[in-house]
């Protein structure tokens, strides 16, 4: 398929170079470097306080780094240092080429406006102005995330947790982003709802050839969705590699502990 060759020849999409963040004397994140390629799913795993969320925030430009840099290859093919982007450029990136799926859908959605408007809003932000087309695109996306189109005019506060999360995903994907950040996207959901969401995410990511950086403490999520894993502890990346390699043949004591703590299926 096309993506094989892309994976082999493409330039990285996102590059982190010696990223660090410290709060006074506390190093929340130390010297993290990696490259992410188009279509590649990278899971950042580790327990609370390991620095994984701090890293995600720096990668997605929400938190200024104390050291190091993040660069991103824009749609025009030019790789830019994120810190050097103007506010307007950064906002455009957020609205078009990037998505961010929060653990709590209420953070990523507007809870009081209709589902259709939640999805349509991203399109309007990039210049769509034909109501019929926006509504059609919104219905199409609701269907793709398995939400009954009859619910398009209802506000997400009337939705269940699983539906809200799927709506948040639709809202993010409607502009055809190349990179999506996800922060514990299945975190607050029931197990059965989680399985359905994971299955949906897995298919969408493959179909749309999305690059994803996903933060999770759940190794099963990492196994199902990601190609590569970075294990964090105390602000550092202690082990990294192909997901099945790291999970089936963990080398570091902490990774072995994480893997051995999974209950057998």
């Amino acid at each position: 398929m096309a993506d094989q060759d892309l994976l082999e020849t493409d330039q990285p999409l996102l590059v982190a170079n010696s990223l660090s963040k410290s709060y006074g004397r506390i190093g929340a994140c130390r010297d993290v470097s990696f490259s992410l390629y188009p279509g590649e799913v990278l899971a950042i795993v580790g327990e609370s306080g390991s620095g994984k969320s701090t890293l995600l925030q720096m990668l997605s430009g929400q938190l200024a780094a104390s050291g190091g840099q993040v660069s991103y290859r824009m749609r025009d093919g030019v790789t830019r240092d994120l810190a050097a982007l103007g506010e307007a450029e950064r906002r455009l990136l957020y609205r078009t080429d990037w998505g961010f799926v929060h653990q709590d859908p209420a953070q990523g959605l507007r809870m009081a406006v209709s589902a259709g408007a939640n999805v349509g809003e991203r399109l309007m932000a990039v210049g769509w102005n034909h109501y019929g087309q926006i509504r059609e695109s919104a219905s199409d996306w609701l269907t793709r995330v398995e939400i009954d189109v009859a619910r398009i005019d209802d506000a997400p506060r009337t939705y269940s947790g699983g539906m809200r999360q799927r709506l948040q995903i639709a809202r993010n994907l409607v502009t055809g982003p190349r990179l999506v950040f996800m922060d514990e996207p299945t975190g607050g959901l029931d197990v059965s709802v989680q399985a359905r969401l994971l299955d949906l995410l897995r298919n969408l990511v493959a179909e749309l050839h999305l690059a994803v950086v996903i933060v999770t403490h759940d190794l099963a999520v990492a196994r199902l969705l990601s190609h590569r894993v970075m294990v964090m502890k105390g602000g550092r990346v202690i082990e990294t590699g192909l997901t099945d390699q790291v999970l089936d043949d963990p080398r570091e004591p902490y990774t072995q502990l994480l893997v051995s703590s999974i209950l057998p299926p």
């Binding site: 094989q4 082999e8 590649e40 190609h227």
Partner: peptide
């Protein structure tokens, strides 16, 4: 890792 994945795909 990317090479390993390519080898597995093809």
């Amino acid at each position: 890792p990317r090479q390993v994945l390519n080898v597995r795909r093809a």
